[in-house]
Write a protein that binds this DNA or RNA. Structure first.
Lengths: 197, 197, 197, 197
DNA sequence: TATGAATGAGCCTTCATTCAT
DNA sequence: AATGAATGAAGGCTCATTCAT
């Protein structure tokens, strides 16, 4: 009936429901971190969440919806951080602040972040691109504000790509020092931006 | 007995079988490109390869082995290209040549390349890292040869990460112009390398 | 995780499931009787049990576990009978009573009994020998109690072997008269025990 | 076409063929001994026999035929031994001689003997009972010749059953001392025969 | 005639999802 | 609303047998 990709089946209206939803999502996240996509089973999620499989399906009509929520949660958290920084930092330091935030974000749960990226790319219908568009836009504006106005459209995408590349690779080899990684990410991004053609 | 991850079950002794093996691998690649991991089924691979499922299993004892073979093939092709360039190009232009080769490689079958990366990260036992080590080593040497001797170990990894980040992102959004992408990758990499701390 | 040979996956908590488990085991038994090992398929068992294949696997993680359970059930039933008789019968008649029980047991479902023996000998890991040990011990004690103390260890094994030999052969040729068979088994066993070297 | 149970596809007419047939049968026997029914595969048999699978099927139209040949071979060997003994031994010692021969036979390749019994019982169509009938007849005659004329028909079957029971059990627990086993078998058989009702 | 590549029915098992209680 | 038993499509893989070379 309403089996198309979509929002969670019901919006939690009571405190208990909100908790249940949160439990389910956190359980999914933990499973992904500990077992990878292999162990990511609706039954496993329900079990770890301390909920019956029936209840799980009362809140999420589809496994895919759980995945989408997880992705959205992660994206929104990052976006909020970045948004806040963009609002509070003077133009010239803004990009650096954003990069710091991105590194910090990805390093919180590196395995999870990588897996969510994978799952996202496997979704039949690419998810709500809204968050992504906003992110790109914030970067673009920050670039311009900092005087990098050579080709902000492309460069904002590249900045994201470079950052993701470095951060993912770091996560994969278990690097966890935020400081050092942050420095190198900034070097790569600003190097790219300042480099003449 | 011989069920450990490893090489194909049977080394083709007749022309016919060599063709079959090639067909199977190509079929697997095509399915990954067209359907993604979802459609990547041994039965589907066999069907697309124009082979019976039994034949497939005569050459590959496990689906995982097909995946590994696909990964190895891709890695080796890239490595061969890079190796050749490293041997033929003067030190100062070497890194640029390698980057060009990498971009070219990834752009040949962008979707496939990305999926293989994913599948590789999902393998129970990480595959033969030999190829990767050689790649890193070649980059490291090229860095030193070009005078980038600040921290070759880390920087060689970062060069790879930056390149992969940019190239994957390009592939994801369907960018196919090798020229333009190559330029930006080089800008990113050399920018990173030249940027003072 | 819990994939080692062992007990059923889930202890039935509701009446419904207890019935389902029983149905599955009885279905397995019936199939073995009517089709032999050839038709003994998890799908067939599920079908005959009037259960979906998924349900079957909710209670038995492996086909092997079904087999083990079947064997254990049969062994335990026999053992219980024998135990009871051993407890209630005066020493001199004890062995005869046990032999009667054994004949009766094997003749209830002769084909099944024979197939379970076969399946048992094919199990990768020989099953819980506990039941067998108890059986041997009971026989041994009964022998001694009846004054057969020549070599109780060996003779108890031989008593079992003789009985099984006769009973299996009878089952194979369709002999079903418990009385007659019982008499001959006792003749064989007591003849063996009384015969001088 | 002629896919019904039957004789080997072609009677070996040349020395080479006879050797091949023998190789195949011996390979089958060895596999059964070393791997049990699990490893008993036509391809495995061919490999161990040093013959291509195609050749195997040239001599045996069906796996079942291989099994039948194996069973027949074993039966005939035993029968020949027994026949010879029956012909050479005076009536009163005849039965004892036969039992010795039976024990000896079963102890030559105990695992194989047991597996062949199993396979025989699994055959869709019970095999050529000729050998069995002759065996029973020989025993029956020996019984009568030795003065055991209470009920030779039934007793001959029971003698066989008792012997098989003891010998199989011995084989299963690894007993290999022919002497000792032979003594116990004779004790059981003669005990049974001499025991009054 | 020998070879071995090819075939495909069928087996065991998983897991997203439904539904009776 | 919660529970968890039940469902069944689908996937990986085996092995007896066939057939082109």
């Amino acid at each position: 009936m309403n089996k198309k990709p979509g929002m969670p089946r019901k919006r939690p209206k009571q405190a208990r429901s909100a908790v249940t939803v949160a439990n389910i999502l956190e359980a999914a996240a933990r499973i992904l971190e500990s077992e990878g996509s292999t162990g990511y089973t609706t039954n496993a999620v329900a079990r770890v969440a301390g909920v019956s499989i029936g209840s799980l399906y009362q809140y999420f009509p589809t496994k895919e919806v759980i995945t989408r929520e997880l992705i959205a949660l992660s994206n929104n958290a990052l976006l909020a951080d970045i948004q806040r920084i963009a609002d509070l930092t003077p133009p010239k330091e803004r990009l650096a602040g954003i990069l710091d935030a991105a590194v910090k974000h990805q390093l919180r749960r590196p395995a999870l972040a990588r897996l969510l990226d994978q799952l996202e790319s496997q979704l039949p219908v690419p998810p709500d691109t809204e968050a992504r568009k906003i992110l790109v836009e914030i970067i673009r504006v920050s670039l311009t504000a900092a005087g990098f106005d050579r080709a902000p459209e492309v460069e904002s995408l590249d900045v994201i790509a470079i950052t993701k590349g470095l951060v993912d690779a770091a996560g994969e080899r278990g690097e966890t020092n935020q400081e050092l990684l942050s420095i190198r990410v900034k070097r790569a991004v600003f190097g790219y931006l300042r480099q003449p053609d």
